[in-house]
Design a protein around this nucleic acid. Structure first.
Lengths: 333, 333
DNA sequence: TCTTAGATTGTAAGCGCTTACAGAAACAGT
DNA sequence: ACTGTTTCTGTAAGCGCTTACAATCTAAGA
């Protein structure tokens, strides 16, 4: 059943039906009502392909995320999806994995689907080397590219970021207030937000006159057991520390396990601060104090910004949202 | 740039280009090579709308899940997506939330997008009341509907399920072997798999001559704190139990918290078995023994079955996959 | 060299919709 | 009643692709 059937039954031309479909005001109320009724009677739904062909758009946004099984990103997907839908857009999801080549490939794939915009969820999409981001920058000339928690300075690329720097700075500051001096910093990768977090840590220490020791700053696979083992081995080597901040909750879970394994008492003797305030931070005993990056707000802002771009409004290229420190049981502020 | 440009440049007709695009064998090798080269030179990608219009399909599968932030479903999404893509299909994801009305609505939405099939991930899509499933059964007359871990007996509905019954039966049996007699069963909902799990529990007890007490079978919100509170209050009321099995890892995490709160020693005095073997079960200390439902295998099978359906093969309506018991630290088998 | 089947390619008619443009209808002003 | 406007509707030309069918070419056999 197609637009022609509807037009026949309603006794009008297909152009009129199409106008009704598209909310064109040049249709008399009477005609519009009749057409709508016929559509309803027939249970007509327009063919999206034909529509897309004519309009050149299918009201679909491409969402890329590096790993939907990361609870943080899974949440992001959920919120992005919900917000897009409430604005009348659908989404095509691509989980790219970590490899740059995959990201490029999936990106192309989404572009070939003629999506109206791309949302890259998670900071993993911005590479350190500029030339590795060329494919994004180039695409942004054709369609809006939205980065959730990432930043690239190029026309057509809109960023919604969390103020990770301040969040970590303040959290570290509180740790220092609570008497900690040897604060370990565990991070998983040098992404846009990863760099900001690390800088927040360094500046907080510096601002309190605490020397920054490279040995206290450690990279670690994003895996709770890896984090636990790292801390255990550092400790067993005699390396001392009285708190740990991590760039991700999963590492903080590992820190709790380390503390249990080596009998360190939390939070007084040993404090832990995670990041993302994900479900993981509620699973351990004690529950992990963590930084809530307001993922829902980030996603809402991202979609609102995108709609602004579609609407032709003058939209800021970068929006920053403040994070919240969520005090649970691994700190005693 | 379109197929016409390519045809011009390659000195052939658009029909030939189209044939190359579709892998039609009636093209000489020489011509094919030339066309492919021109496509490459021009960076040509076919317009999906036009293609969809012509073919009546866009090689897109609708995926519905009730909640992508559930780690189990997030994983499912990841695997489904990956498998579909490797078969040349894209996916449109819808996270429906719990309400039946939403599910219906999103279902319609995906149908209107002319997806080639629907995958419903998670057992939450099969309602207890048959008439609430009517919309699915009806849709299955038009296009394949795949249930991941759910079962509906109707033409066109293909199920890939985990053998939850046996998994729970055997796990309960081992608990009994290890000396437990008062085994609490915590479940979140009466879904297809929920019913099977519960039956496995009951039959295991019955087969060992242990009476089934209704008071030992408890429903609980899917929330670790709710589970903890439930156990704490049962215990404080003097209700005794020496093990707990849950229909979801999140409840098992709550059980660990309860054990810590009330000083019960795991696993000897108190054993815990979770379900899904998700990341949550690795976060606690001790880590939770859990049942691995082979989500990856389920997803692979689902997609393979779907491809079989597309290929016109004779495909079983229901495939069952065995689960694995993963022994960690909350049991001592 | 002439046929002829088989391989290859081209022509043109859709697929269902949008929309520029033209035409009809309605209405007000004279 | 006659124009000039304004409002509404219809016609028809795409959008870029697929594919049935017709046309052409090739090469083997007579």
């Amino acid at each position: 059943m197609n637009i022609y059937d509807v037009s026949q039954r309603a006794g009008v031309s297909i152009a009129t039906v199409s106008r009704v479909l598209n909310g064109n005001p040049n249709v008399s109320d009477k005609t519009r009502a009749r057409v709508l009724q016929v559509m309803d009677e027939l249970g007509y739904t327009p063919n999206v392909f034909a529509r897309g062909l004519g309009l050149g758009t299918m009201k679909t946004i491409g969402i890329m995320c590096s790993d939907s099984s990361d609870p943080y990103l899974a949440n992001a997907i959920y919120f992005l999806e919900r917000e897009l839908r409430s604005n009348g857009y659908d989404s095509i999801l691509c989980c790219t994995g970590a490899s740059l080549e995959n990201k490029r490939q999936y990106f192309e794939l989404l572009l070939s689907k003629r999506v109206d915009a791309m949302i890259l969820a998670g900071s993993k999409f911005v590479e350190m080397k500029d030339r590795d981001n060329a494919y994004i920058i180039e695409a942004a000339r054709e369609l809006p590219v939205m980065l959730v928690n990432g930043y690239l300075n190029a026309p057509g690329i809109y960023s919604t970021v969390c103020d990770d720097y301040t969040a970590v700075f303040q959290a570290a500051d509180k740790l220092i207030d609570s008497g900690k001096r040897r604060i370990l910093y565990l991070y998983t990768s040098y992404s846009y937000s990863g760099i900001n977090k690390l800088q927040g840590y360094k500046d907080a220490l510096a601002s309190r006159g605490i020397p920054i020791e490279d040995a206290l700053i450690r990279q670690c696979a994003k895996n709770l057991h890896a984090a636990k083992e790292l801390l255990v081995s550092l400790w067993d080597e005699g390396f001392s520390f009285d708190a740990v901040m991590t760039s991700d909750d999963s590492l903080a879970v590992g820190a709790v396990k380390y503390a249990h394994a080596r009998g360190r008492s939390i939070p007084d003797e040993f404090s832990i601060i995670g990041y993302n305030n994900s479900m993981l931070s509620y699973c351990t005993d004690p529950e992990i104090s963590s930084i809530d990056t307001k993922i829902e707000a980030l996603c809402i802002t991202t979609v609102n910004t995108l709609m602004g771009v579609f609407g032709g409004g003058n939209v800021p290229l970068k929006t920053t949202i403040a994070a919240d420190f969520i005090q649970k049981q691994t700190t005693n502020f």
